[in-house]
Structures are given as structure tokens and as C-alpha cells.
Design a protein around this nucleic acid. Structure first.
Lengths: 240, 240, 240, 240
DNA sequence: CATGAATGAGCTTTCATTCAT
DNA sequence: CATGAATGAAAGCTCATTCAT
């Protein structure tokens, strides 16, 4: 299950002078490992866990089946690292977001744009999460790493929300969690289900104008959701 | 691809007065076919397309592998019928919705409750749609049947929206399509990603209170989205 | 193994007045049986015994698998009747040959033309014999009928040979058996192996000119083989 | 289609002085491959292509089904190599024939004895060619290798014929192609159809005397076919 | 007479994985 | 470090045949 030779991902130890001193062999190994991981992301994203065979991956990585076992111990081991990796990447991208806490409205908008845009640019992230959910999150639970990456996203929202609330721009009775879910849901679903929806609606959801329109609609929806004004007279819910 | 003995699903069972009566064997055959289809829904929903083996299905149906090929021609043929079937069921459930067109607010709320509730009660629908999207909607495109089911859902929203707009309850610049996507996205994503989200958020999204809370939040969000009042001072979008 | 309801093949019993009095049902049955037999000849000839599946045959006959068992008992039973049938047809064709015993040279030529021509016009005969030989003649041994058909062919040659020998046109030290084999071999091999030979020789053996040329060559060879003059000074055979 | 690990058949085993030495594993691999190929020749020759199952072959080779796919890619890939191999062997045997060009009559006799004898000693060659012809030469066309082997056989005949013609021993109006076909046909047909012929003629064609007699008959026929004297008064062919 | 339904053995092929250098 | 060879289980699918009207 667990991989035998766990290399650190950040590798490339530097000599005092700053030049890289990794031998060619180590470097080649690193490359092989990375190639496999990258190939696995593509293959698992495209074919799912069961459909993504070891052979497909090793061929896509221009390596051999055996190497997968050498570096990752098993197919499942590789898959877990794939899940970890895509969370890591998402997190890394989030860190690039430089928000101005004193401008909560703009910041919130930027967050929505980032989330919607990230899913659009990384459909493999969406597919892999779906695959992981098909397996009831069995692998993410095993991974210590992946869970660490959750807090930042919500934390950003929390700060932004607090700032907006302090300024009286946002209503008080909304949680960061709900706001996070709202943003994620609308960005995610649109991409995740774009194929069935395209057939269903008879239009191409991936057309640039369609994507741009949806982004604006989501922003609008989110801003309305956080706006201080209450919705007009919502009547008591009838029993469904 | 297409199965050899395609029986109509609407059995033709007009006994005392009508001419045709189904024999025991015909009836048994119908049962076998139905058992396989039902088992396939469960198995494909649980294991995905590749993970859902023919043997798993035939065992769950208490039948034989061979019968799947007898009735559905191939694994893919069975899968396509599964997709058609879940759309059919969804559509059938929608038809039960009796909305009062003169009460657009209540009707909209009912629709949201229905959608959110349907996904909750039918997680297999969610999983199967994800699987179909993993395959880029390859099968739904082939199915003539499945695409017929799209219009009703949107049509309901359209009428409801028009009615509300006529009464001045809803804003005018929102389309049925966007409203439909908004409702579906929030109901769907919550269920679809409940496992990774539960790990991510450190809470159980399937807990009854969590589900109820989310339902209310979505209703609130949707009502705000259609409300006539514009959101407060949305600044011009900076280039992302 | 043996078929349950063995119909006579010559069927069609005639009433005193000469009109056919078979009921529609019997006729339909006869047709079904014949269709299957004809389809089986094609399918077995094309795909061999193992490659010729029951389904392929029933489809080609526009009937059902079940009917094969109804009329022929088993796949092997059908195959045996196929072998019998092609021998019967060959024999029937031979009977049409009206040879003039007083003109042995012309008669021999006619026989060669007939044999070479029959194989050419009935490649299925060739293929089916090969298939039967692949199975070491297992089925022909079982069939009483098929063996009856051997004698006529050789008998024709025997009479023709005797007549020619009496007239001093043919040499005396050649048997009907050898002559028969010689004729058959050259007609058969050319057709039987035409595909590999075409690749081997880089020419199309089925081209009309090629076929005509071969026919003449075989006639010439056969005539030389029966000619009274001995071949010039064949030296003693060296040990191979 | 094509197998993944294609080793050259000529092993590369230059030990004491040469650089490369084959390891035990490499050697074992070579053996496994060879065992499979040899087993496949036997099994395909005995049961045909469809009747020769992968399991039968792997068992006969004391290996596993999987190895067939490892070395040959598919059943068809293995079959193609079988066809190539038997052509190669035939060619190799032909090369052992040391003919004296100055003695064309003896040389021609030797060729006939060789061909007839080769088919007799290698009935699997005959059966496999029949199988290949059943498939309309589909595989031989794909094989580059197999087609190379055609020229030598005919070339031998051509030289021999030219020499005999120069010496006035052979007639001039006969081609090497026709002579080759004549020899092959008579050797081949006798073996190829020995089972049905044995039933047909009521004698055992594989009895040593029968075989010897046929060989002499074919030699005689071939010598008569090339003899300079024209056959006596062949009358104009009547239209068949 | 005719035929849909059922059956289990067998087919070719692919799977993830381990062995042995 | 790296990799060809080996392995057996399981995959999807087809086979000839029988059951039950």
C-alpha cells in the first residue's frame, strides 16, 4: 500500500553556493517519478480510478508499470498522491490571491472569479474530486496531507466576510462555510456537469460567452446572498 | 450494440376484457429484465462504469451474466438504459409537483425543496450523472429518450418565473436557464461532493440538521437571486 | 446428435393429378429447413466449423437458433448434412455429363474441364472439404450417404480409360484411381490455395485468363500422362 | 496488434570472446517464446484458427495464457508468426537441396521427391496453409516476411528448366510457374485431402506403399509434362 | 409448429501485481 | 537504479444447448 522509497517532493537540495548538486541519476529518478505523477493525474482524471489502468499511466509517462510500484507501492498509493497533489496545487494557487481586506466587495468578487476560473482551467481537478466522491472519500481520509489544505480556503472567506460585516456591507447572519459552499457549488457544478447539461440544454456550456455569462451570474448571486437587505417577505415553507 | 429482444416497457396487460394476457413466462422475463436494470442502477451508481462489473450486476439481480447480453446487448447498452431510466424517474417525479402558478414565491420555494430533496433521496442519480460526465456525456448523446426529458424541468421554471415577473415579485433580467442552473448546482454539489467536503470541513454533511440548514440557505439564496431589488453597489469587475 | 424430425429431402409428394398438395405449413417448414441448410453451407464454407457459429447460420437463414436444433438436432448434425449435401450436388452435376465413350480423348478432356470448372464455380465445396479434412474426415465417416457418391466419379474415368486403351489411344499402365487423383489434384489445389498462391506468386489466380490458362495446362498434362509413349529415359531415382 | 517485446529470433550468444552473453533469464524468456510458437504450430495445425484456443496453446507450451499476449500481442499476432515460421522452415529445407544444374532430369526428379516428401513429413504445413486460405490469405498479406520466401522455390525450378531446355531435354513452351504449380498441386492435394479421399476411395492413402506409388506417379507425370514430344493429336477443345 | 427465455461453460483479453536479476 | 519476465484472477463477451410453453 505505502510506497517504498518516499522522496521529498521539494527535492533538489542546494549546495551552499546555491548550485544544484543532485546527481544525474537522482534527477532522472525525480523526473521519472514526476512524469508518472503527472501522467496519473491526466489518466485518472480522464478514465476514473478503475478505468485508469496502470499500463495507461506508465505509457503516458513513457515509463514502465514496474516503476509505479517502485515509487508509489501500488495503484492506490499513486492515486492517493494524485489526490494530495491536486489539493496542493489548488492551495498553492489560492496563496497567490492577494486580496485587499479593506475592500471586501472587490475581494469577494475576486474570490468568486478565482474559484470559477480555477475549475474552468483545471477540469482534471473537478473530475478527480468526483472520482474520489464516488469512492466515498475513502482515500482522502487516509491522507494526512490533503486535509491540511482545507482551512486556508475557508479562512480567506472568513476574514473577508468579517471585514465586510464590520463595514456594514454584508449581512451578519451568514457563515463563511455557507458562503464558501455557495461559491464552490456554482463554479463546480457548471464544469462538473457540463457534458450532460450541454445535451440537456442543447447548448455548449464551454463556449467562452457562456462561461463569461455564468461567471457574472454567480458573482451577482453571491453578492445578493451576502447583501444586508433581507429578501422580500419569504412566506412560511409549505410541507414538500 | 442494441439488444435483440426489445420489449416495450409498458407491459400490455389488459386482462379480463382485453385480448392479450401476459403468460407466466413473459411476465418472468419482464421481471428478469427489470431486476437487471434495477441492479445495474445500484451497481453503476456505487462503483462507476468500469468498477461496475457485469458479474456484480447479474449477481445483484439474482440472474446470470448471459442475460445482460440477452436483454441489453452489451454492458454499454445496459448502461445507456440505466441513464435513460434515471432521467425518466426524475421526470416522473417532477410531474408529481403540483405548483400553484398564482403563488410564484411559494412555487419557487417548492421547486427548490423538490430539487434539493430529490438529490438527497436519490444519491444514485447524482453518482450516475457524475459517471456520465466522466465519460463526457458519450452515452446520453446516443440516447434519444434521455434528451426529451430536459424541457419539462426548465419549462416549469419558465412559467413560474413569468408569473412572478408579471406580479412584480421577481426581477426581469434573469433567465429560466440561469435560475434552473442555480437551483440544481446548489442541490447537486452538496450531495455530489459530500464525502470530500465532509473531510474538508470536518463535519458530517449528511446529518439531518446540516441537510435542513442547507436547504433553507439555498431557498434564501434563490429568493435573493430573483428578488427585484438590485444588489447594493456592485463595483465594476476588475480584470481577473 | 441425430435430428428429431427427419424429413425426406425429396419431399413434395405429388397428387395423382400432378399438383402439389403439400400444406402451407409443411411447405414453410421445408423452406425453413432448406434455408438453414443453404445458410449453413455458406457459413461453414466461409468460417470453418468452429468459426461458423449457430447464430451466424440462423441469422443468415433468417430463422432462429432453436430451429437448427429442431431440424438437425445439433450443430454437428447440421454440419454432417452439409457435407452430405455438397457431395450430393457434386454427384448430381457429374450425372449431367454426357460423354461419348467412343471418343475417349474428347471425353477425357470434357472430364477435366468439368472437374476444374466445378471447383471454380463451387469454391464452397473446396473449402468445406478442407474443413472436413482438418477434422480428419471424422464426419464423412459417420455419413452413410456421402460414401455412396464416390464410385460414380471413378467409374466414369474407368470406362473412359478402358475405351481409350482399347483404341490404343491411352497407355495401359495407368489406373483410373491415379488418373482421377491427377485431375482432381490440379483442379482442386489451384482453387484451394488460390489466396496464399496469389500472395506467393504476386499475381491474381482468379483472373479469367489465369483460370483459362490453367485449365489448358491441366488438360495438356493429363493427356500427356495417359499418352502411350513413354517419357524419355527417366533415370533411376537417387535416394532422396 | 504487434507484440510489445520483440526479440530477434537469432539469439545473440557470443560468449567467451564476444561481449554479450545471454543471462539465464533472457534464455528462459527465449525458451518460453519458442515453446509457445512451437505449441501454436501444433495446435493451429490440428484445430484450425478458431478451434485452436489460447488455452490449448499455453497448456501445450507449459506456459500461461498471459504470456501469449506478452510475447505476441494477440492470438492473431501469434498466428501470423506461425504462418511466417512455417514458410521460413520450408524455405530453409529448400536451401538444403543441392541440385546438379548439369543434370536437369535428375534435378527435377529430386525436386519432386523433395516437395512430395516435405508435405508428407510436415502435414502441419499443409493444414496451416489450408487454414490460411480459409481466411482468404488475410494474414499472409500482412506479413512482410512470408512473401520473401516465394521467389527461391520458383527460382530453383526456373534454373533447372532453363538448363534442361538448353540441353534439349525439356520442351520450350512451359513456364516455371506452371511446373511449380503442377508439382505442388500433386504433392499437396494427396496429403491435404487424404482423409476424405481415404473414405472416398476406400483405402488408406497414408500406407507407405500408397505413398511411394504416388510419388513415382507424380514423377512420371511431371517428366511427361516437360518432355519435348507433343502429346498425340489433342483435338480442338469443344465448348464446355 | 415455432420461439422467447434461460443456462453455464468457454472464449479472448486485460488487470494489478510480484519475481529475479 | 531499473526493468524484462512471470503470474493468476477477473474482465467482457460468445458459445452451443435446453427449458417451457
Amino acid at each position: 500500500m505505502s510506497a517504498t522509497p518516499r522522496k521529498t517532493r521539494t527535492a533538489a537540495k542546494k549546495s551552499p553556493t546555491g548550485r544544484r548538486t543532485v546527481g544525474v541519476r537522482e534527477q532522472a529518478a525525480q523526473t521519472t517519478r514526476d512524469n508518472i505523477l503527472k501522467a496519473a493525474i491526466k489518466v485518472f482524471a480522464r478514465y476514473g480510478y478503475d478505468g485508469g489502468s496502470v499500463e495507461k499511466i506508465s505509457k503516458a509517462a513513457k515509463s514502465f508499470d514496474r516503476m509505479i510500484y517502485y515509487y508509489f507501492g501500488s495503484k492506490e498509493g499513486l492515486y492517493i498522491e494524485v489526490i494530495e497533489e491536486i489539493y496542493r496545487r489548488m492551495n498553492e494557487a489560492e496563496e497567490q490571491l492577494n486580496l485587499r481586506p479593506d475592500q471586501p466587495l472587490e475581494a469577494l468578487q475576486a474570490v468568486v472569479r478565482f474559484v470559477v476560473g480555477y475549475y474552468r482551467r483545471h477540469p482534471e481537478f473537478v473530475t478527480l474530486l468526483n472520482t474520489e466522491n464516488l469512492h466515498k472519500g475513502r482515500h482522502i481520509v487516509k491522507s494526512v496531507r490533503a486535509r491540511e489544505y482545507s482551512s486556508p480556503a475557508i479562512e480567506i472567506i472568513r476574514q473577508l466576510l468579517a471585514s465586510g460585516q464590520a463595514q456594514g456591507l454584508f449581512r451578519l447572519d451568514i457563515s463563511a462555510r455557507d458562503l464558501y459552499l455557495l461559491i464552490a457549488a456554482n463554479g463546480y457544478f457548471y464544469m462538473s456537469n457540463r457534458h450532460t447539461l450541454s445535451a440537456f440544454l442543447g447548448e455548449d456550456l464551454e463556449a467562452p460567452e457562456a462561461l463569461a455569462h455564468w461567471e457574472e451570474f454567480v458573482i451577482d448571486t453571491v453578492l445578493r446572498a451576502v447583501a444586508p437587505a433581507a429578501p422580500p417577505t419569504s412566506p412560511p415553507a409549505p410541507t414538500s
